[in-house]
Every structure is written in C-alpha cells, then in structure tokens.
C-alpha cells in the first residue's frame, strides 16, 4: 500500500496532539510513516505506533537544535527520498509550514497550507481550507509533484489504530545551507499548566472590555474552571494586558475548539478570522450591537465583571 510521510511535532519525545490528528488523516490516504527528529526522537515511537504509524524514521544530531529550520528540511528530504511517499503531511505550526514549504521547493511539488480536512480523491488528496477570515471554505488539490500539505490543529479526531511502528534510523547528510542561521540561545516559554491554545477543546478569551492586565485573572479563573486555554484579542495584546503568544486572530493563533467563550471582545474581522470556525461560540459583551453577537450560539449582553465571576462560580458549584 502507498505510504504517507508524517512529520512529527514533539517535545523531547512527547508527541504533540496535532501529530496524532495527522495520523488519522494520513490513514485515509495510505500507510503512515512517521519522521521524528531531534532529542527524544526514538521515544515518540510508542505513541505513533498506537495511532497508526507503520514505521518511525528517527534521526538526532546537534544541528536540529542549534540551527533554524534547514537541518529539519534536509532530514525530511532524506526521508522523502527513502520512502517515495504519495503525500507529505506536516503540522501547521510556524516552523512546520516553513519546513514543508522548503521541502516542496526542493522536490518540485505544490504546497497547501493550513488544511482543516483531508480526503482521498481520484487525483490525489483533496484539502479543505478556510479563506478570507474563514468566511469561505475551499477545496484544493496539488497538481505538480508529491502533495505537501500542512494541517491545522483540531482538524481531525485522534484515533487509536495500532500498527507496527518499527523504529528505523534515518541517514541524514546536512546541506551547506543547514548551518546558515544559528540559534544563539533559547528561552523556553514558561508553562502556565493550561492547555496549548491551538489544541484546546475550550478557549476562554478576553478583549478590550477586560480593561487592564490585572483584570485578566477573572478570565483565567473561568478558563481554569473549564480546563480551558486562555486567549486574548489583538486590542488586549496591543495594550500589553496579555502575552502575544495568546493572541487569537489574523495575526495571532487561529483556533477551532469545541467551545469558544469571548469576553469583552467586539468581534472585529481581525479576531473573527482566528475563531469563527469554533463549534460552539459564546460571548459576553456590554454592547448589544457588537458584531460578535452575530456569531454566537449563546450571548449575554451585560457587564463581564458581573457575568463572568457568576459564571465561574456557577460552574464550580455544578461541578460540586
């Protein structure tokens, strides 16, 4: 059966959820062969096998951490040459997209980024994408070379599908370009203990109406009562109330959770672009005319400083 190359996003061997979702999609097209690089690469094999990887190609070298992007492109290209897959799937992280794009140039293939669904088709995989701030849905194909497709988090369910997951060492020889951009230092982001924004099932966001960095604690408390990630609108981030890493919108993260709760967010196009594919949308805003209310399944017109703490308390009470 045809093989599909799946690039593994992992942290020291812990496979991130979007990669497991990618395996679900890969199995619709062929047999998934995973490529895991860097520190802990071999430790990914068990989780990958459980979700359908027939083989796990691994490589580790200092270059993967010490230089930007290109060493990983070299390795993925080596895997491509070794496997001759029918498609290459990569998680749509910032780095994932760059790796995929450079590989596509090298192997003379078209690229589709930020797919939200993938099906097998007569002329190769068909990718669904959202366009123009998610106001349109498109279906696209790659017409040249081996399809290279990056897929957004939350695009498919994680499914158990046990397979062999045989670990094989991948031979990589680095190109001259590999050492072009040095990573001089790396400061890990402090963990908040909350789910990753793009992967979370529930996202609770605050905007201009939160009116100050100190007030974000009421957004965080609501998030924690639901086991949710915290998001922020551009207005809140630009005002310095919350970190840019939590920004939801066109220039921040694009999220598609089961539940999105927008607090004090008007719903400008910039924000809608990042959240309107959420399954259920709820908003609290004191302005009844705010465009966010056009999107909601349930909306409360009111003061978030009254409504949100009451909601949090009610959730805690109901949970017992």
């Amino acid at each position: 059966m045809a093989e599909v190359l799946v690039y593994v996003d992992h942290v020291d061997g812990a496979v991130r959820k979007p990669t497991l979702e990618l395996l679900t999609l890969a199995r619709r097209i062929g047999e998934p062969v995973a490529v895991a690089l860097g520190n802990g690469a071999a430790d990914t094999a068990a989780a990958l096998a459980e979700h359908g990887a027939t083989r796990v190609l691994t490589a580790d070298a200092p270059e993967f951490a010490d230089y930007l992007v290109v060493p990983k492109v070299d390795a993925l290209q080596a895997a491509y040459a070794a496997v001759s897959p029918v498609a290459v799937l990569v998680p749509s992280s910032a780095e994932g997209k760059e790796i995929a794009a450079r590989l596509a140039v090298r192997i003379k293939s078209g690229i589709i980024t930020d797919a939200v669904d993938l099906e097998a088709g007569d002329e190769g995989p068909v990718a669904t994408q959202s366009a123009f701030a998610a106001s349109f849905t498109t279906k696209s194909r790659i017409t040249q070379g081996t399809p290279v497709i990056t897929v957004k988090p939350n695009s498919a369910a994680v499914e158990a599908a046990p397979a062999a997951g045989a670990v094989e060492a991948l031979e990589v020889s680095f190109s001259a370009a590999a050492t072009g951009t040095k990573v001089v230092s790396r400061t890990p982001r402090e963990s908040t203990g909350r789910p990753e924004l793009t992967e979370a099932a529930i996202v609770v966001s605050g905007g201009r109406g939160v009116n100050g960095a100190e007030n974000f604690s009421i957004i965080e408390k609501l998030a924690d009562s639901l086991g949710a990630a915290v998001g922020a609108s551009r207005a809140a981030v630009d005002a310095g109330w919350y970190p840019h890493s939590n920004q939801v919108g066109q220039t921040g993260k694009s999220v598609s959770p089961q539940l999105y709760i927008a607090n004090g967010i008007s719903g400008a196009i910039q924000h809608r672009a990042g959240m309107q594919t959420s399954k259920t949308i709820v908003a609290v805003n004191k302005d009844a005319e705010a465009p966010i209310f056009d999107l909601v399944d349930y909306g409360v017109v009111g003061d978030l400083f009254e409504v949100v703490p009451q909601l949090t308390q009610e959730i805690e009470t109901r949970k017992g």
Partner: peptide, 15 residues
Amino acid sequence: GTIVKDEGEGGKQLA
C-alpha cells in the same frame, strides 16, 4: 443564537 440581557442572572443562565 440565543441572546439574553443580564438582569443579574446572566452568568447562571450562561452556565
């Protein structure tokens, strides 16, 4: 969707 005006019970209604 359903849109309600908070009359003091908005948080509970949302819950």
